[in-house]
Design a protein around this nucleic acid. Structure first.
Lengths: 216, 216
DNA sequence: CCAGTAATTATTCAAGCGTATAATTATTTT
DNA sequence: AAAATAATTATACGCTTGAATAATTACTGG
């Protein structure tokens, strides 16, 4: 009649535990979808008991929102800090931005699973909808700034209206390709999506975005 | 102590009932997301009791798959049978295809909710994944055929490889714009997405897709 | 108009859900 | 080293879930 011994544990800092719970949430959703993201499954993945979730988050919904925010920031940062996005001519940086958006680790079935799951929730949840709206604009605005700079650099100034349209279109093709590459990975050869994306943004904007053979 | 009277009902044909249950499933998911799609909620929406679902579908998962199939067929058909897609020059039909894809009723928050919910499931469910793969190809192949025809029509033949890339890119920009229009409806003016999409496919393919002032 | 049948409703079941609360224990404070 | 504190586990609760089964009733063919 010996009941199992009470489980040992370590005390962690609040931010560490929160990060762990968010990471566990993202793992569960990316592997098994939103419907699998229950407090028990998430707690098990984080190697804690379920009660701890409500010690750090006021509700499961609150944890989901934090995970959404975290994931979108992670994804945006992965693009914005990629190697060719931070230096070089504006055209180089725009090209790097497109390439990074359409290459691993950004293109990735797990990240598409996260994105689609969160979007599905965001469409009928005001809090998540705000996160979606904000991150969408953040990404598109970065793209628009890069396009504007590249056009200025090549002496092809564009009106604000045209700039807006170019950004929407470029963002659209990047999003669409990213999605398809993540949802059907076996469909595209290595580098194929990045090449198509780069050609597409070049065709849309009229910019020459291909790397020069000789650099600097 | 009078229990409520047993509910009256009508017997329907099997196909009618199945259609009703599928329609109810789509309504629930589009309004409230996949997590809300429980057998009880769906049955209530279809105005039947929950037991009936398992009389017509071997499991809830089976109903979901049928609803997915139905929805994707509906969406594909809405584009393929739109008024300008079935007649005119190849360029006219391609333009009609793009316009129809980026206008109501195809652009619609409910349909994005359906699409994102199903995709999230498809990423970890083999049966749904097959449906996704099949419908993706169906749409892209239609687009590729139209582009091929339009290029032939203007004496600009393309290699199969280039044709594939143009179709992937055009499909990408259409998907991306469709998604953004459905997810953030207030973001775009009426007709704006359709215009941007048409301009984009024109820029990608090098085709002139704008309507002539004088038509046949 | 009656008997048969299968479509539909009603009820039940075990498991899982999010949340609330009580009991412990690792760590910090003094 | 003892006491205080809060992080963590453990347990319980009421409700919902997908599914199974039993009870009815609308329709059909004679």
């Amino acid at each position: 009649m010996s009941s199992p011994p009470r489980r040992k544990f370590r005390r962690e800092t609040a931010s560490q535990r929160k990060d762990d719970l968010i990471a566990a949430t993202l793992q569960v959703i990316s592997e098994s979808g939103v419907r699998a993201a229950t407090v028990r499954t998430i707690a098990e993945r984080a190697e804690v008991t379920q009660g701890l979730i409500r010690h750090y988050f006021s509700s499961k919904e609150d944890l989901i929102a934090a995970a959404y925010e975290h994931h979108m920031t992670q994804m945006t940062d992965a693009v914005a800090t990629a190697k060719d996005v931070t230096a070089g001519t504006a055209r180089d940086r725009l090209a790097g931005f497109v390439m990074a958006s359409l290459s691993p680790p950004v293109v990735n079935p797990g990240w598409v699973a996260l994105w689609s799951g969160f979007l599905n929730e965001a469409l009928h949840d005001a809090d998540l909808n705000k996160i979606h709206q904000r991150t969408y604009h953040h990404f598109r605005d970065q793209l628009e700034a890069l396009i504007a700079e590249a056009l200025r650099e090549t002496d092809q100034p564009a009106t604000p209206e045209r700039l807006r349209q170019l950004a929407i279109a470029s963002n659209g093709v990047i999003d669409g390709l990213w999605l398809e590459g993540g949802a059907l990975p076996q469909e595209f050869a290595t580098g194929e999506l990045a090449k198509i994306g780069l050609d597409s943004v070049a065709a849309l904007t009229g910019l020459d975005l291909h790397r020069k053979a000789i650099d600097t």
